[in-house]
């Protein structure tokens, strides 16, 4: 694989920090009940979305999960429209009808976050058929979690994607917990990537805190898919820094384990350090990047707060026609 350019590396960092700051802001807004319902922050897992979406084109499709804000941001979503959706406003991606778990956009090729664990996996088969039938070299990336890998449709979909040689890249974000259920106690094999052998596709494990490593393995899988060789399964080992949602203290986890990942595997800290060590950015430039991102996130909150609520009269009219 070709050396990564400076611009690519800077972009990785920018995406990772943008996701982190966006998520931190959503947690704050959740705590003051401006965002309600369910919120599943992607904090700690940012490098997977950043590395993966950098390896595909805007015209490619992604299928996301309930913990999906990072995927949308990495695919190029507008923070304003995302935040507006989280606040239930009419200017949001789904006009306030979807919320955190259902952000989707045709133009972005974002085929939907999903409130059902594993719910997006079968949809990847259809998006894969679509890419294959079009024959324009388009691919579909399907994000899912360790929890979803135990759902029956995982088997149906990966088998079918393989049988029909579909250009789909399955990216399992193994953050070690399905709410409180640990992956170690719920998965019959050591690594989810091993399951790829059942479907006669490559199965690769990657450090999900390292955007360059993720970019590398996803790029290989994308090249394979574009050349008509079919699907791949990538297992990105990662960690959910917080609980399942902001109100989950996650007491079922060992404190030492949490401390280890937060100190050793934080993609924001690690990648900043790497780019400084490699003299790609200096501290001042990173500070400027942070400030720019902070402003963009704050602007998104302002945009969302100033946006109109969906009109009740219009809703009632629409309901009549459904």
């Amino acid at each position: 694989m070709a050396e990564l350019t400076r611009e690519q590396k800077v972009e990785f960092l920018k995406t990772i920090i943008t996701i982190r700051r966006f998520e931190e802001k959503t947690i704050q807004l959740y705590q003051v009940a401006k965002i309600w319902g369910y919120l599943h922050p992607y904090v700690g897992e940012e490098a997977i979305a950043a590395g993966t979406c950098a390896a595909i084109k805007k015209s490619d499709y992604i299928i996301s999960t309930h913990r999906g804000h990072g995927h949308s941001i990495a695919k190029g979503a507008d923070l304003n429209r995302m935040m507006a959706e989280l606040l239930g406003k009419s200017t949001g991606y789904c006009k306030g009808r979807g919320g955190s778990m259902h952000i989707a956009d045709t133009e972005l090729g974002m085929l939907g976050a999903n409130g059902i664990v594993g719910g997006g996996i079968p949809i990847s088969v259809g998006a894969g058929f679509s890419c294959k039938m079009e024959a324009q070299g388009r691919v579909t990336v399907c994000f899912f979690s360790d929890g979803a890998a135990n759902n029956g449709v995982f088997h149906e979909a990966l088998n079918m994607a393989s049988v029909f040689t579909l250009p789909v890249i399955y990216v399992c974000e193994n953050n070690m917990y399905a709410i409180s259920m640990s992956a170690c106690e719920s998965i019959s094999c050591k690594d989810i990537a091993n399951r790829a052998s059942s479907y006669d596709m490559p199965g690769v494990i990657v450090d999900g805190s390292d955007p360059e490593a993720v970019y590398g393995v996803v790029s290989s899988a994308v090249a394979r898919a574009r050349s008509g060789k079919g699907p791949s399964l990538i297992e990105a080992k990662t960690y959910r820094f917080g609980g399942h949602h902001p109100n989950d203290p996650a007491e079922y986890r060992d404190k030492k384990e949490v401390e280890y990942y937060k100190s050793e595997k934080d993609p924001v800290i690690n990648y900043k350090k790497k780019l400084i060590d490699e003299k790609i950015l200096n501290e001042e430039e990173i500070k400027m990047m942070e400030e720019k991102i902070k402003k963009a996130v704050e602007d998104s909150v302002r945009f969302a707060e100033e946006s109109p609520e969906p009109q009740l009269e219009r809703f009632l009219e629409e309901v009549k026609s459904i």
Partner: peptide, 13 residues
């Protein structure tokens, strides 16, 4: 599940 998912995924694309 995958037959309906396949239909849906193709339909939304």
């Amino acid at each position: 599940g995958a037959i309906i998912g396949a239909g849906m995924g193709a339909a939304i694309t």
